[in-house]
Amino acid sequence: MRNASLLLALGLCLAACDWESDGAARLAARYTDTSGPADVGTDEVAPPDVDLGDVGGTGLTGRWAVQVVVKGTMQPLSAPWPYVETTLFLTDLEDGAASASWRFCDQQTAVEATPASLASKTQFPEATQAALEAAPLPVSLSADGLAASTLVWLWGLDGEALGDATVKPSGIDATSPAVVDQDDDGHPGVTVEVVKPAAGMRYQARWERFDLAAGSLSEDGQRIEGNLAADAVEFVLDASISALKSPSKLKVDEGNGHTWRLRRVPADYTCDDLRQDAAGLFPAP
């Protein structure tokens, strides 16, 4: 009798075990993800061929494309999301000069958000782009490349008002005296257009410090590369919609694991060229 009961129970269990209503599958069939692939730039995609022609040159003199890659995490929600920030500059070097200036061209930030579709996508309005281009970063040169130097890159902040600009600021808000309307658009700081996940304008200030290690010209005279340590902080001063007012809580990875790379380019090379060629000029290591 006991065995029969067990068999009956087992039989019922087996019958019931086949029953399943899967709400997740039901939703998957009803909704498709229209957000597209995440904006993460770490996918292994073959870099496009870049034909720069005969760039020539043996010393430092000439135009160079610059790529600075900084890694860290941001934490708009509870879990930290890794990000890779890639900034592009152009610079003109001159043999024997003590310094040069990096002129801003573009910055892209790839965020590994969870879920991926929550990753933010931003772009610079013209006024912001122009304001950042108009504030080049001075770097020190050595006889055969870049000397070790510290760069402080300020967005929407007055370095003199900060006092020692190399020290990471805190407690900055729209009323802080160090905040300036750098892009002259009537909003504090600089304006960044957020395309997703919520669309709107974010008015922000940013402090970023690059401690560049020295780097020397490569044997073929086409490259100069080195590492850097970095730190950064971002202050949301205001936003066109409330959802964009949350701080992103940047935390740059500690250590000297970030990279800067220079690649010789033609003398008439522009920021537009650089934005187009960047992946080919600076293939992933």
Partner: peptide, 9 residues
């Protein structure tokens, strides 16, 4: 002996 129900959100 219940049916398995997966909740999806």
């Amino acid at each position: 002996f219940p049916e398995k129900v997966v909740f999806g959100l």
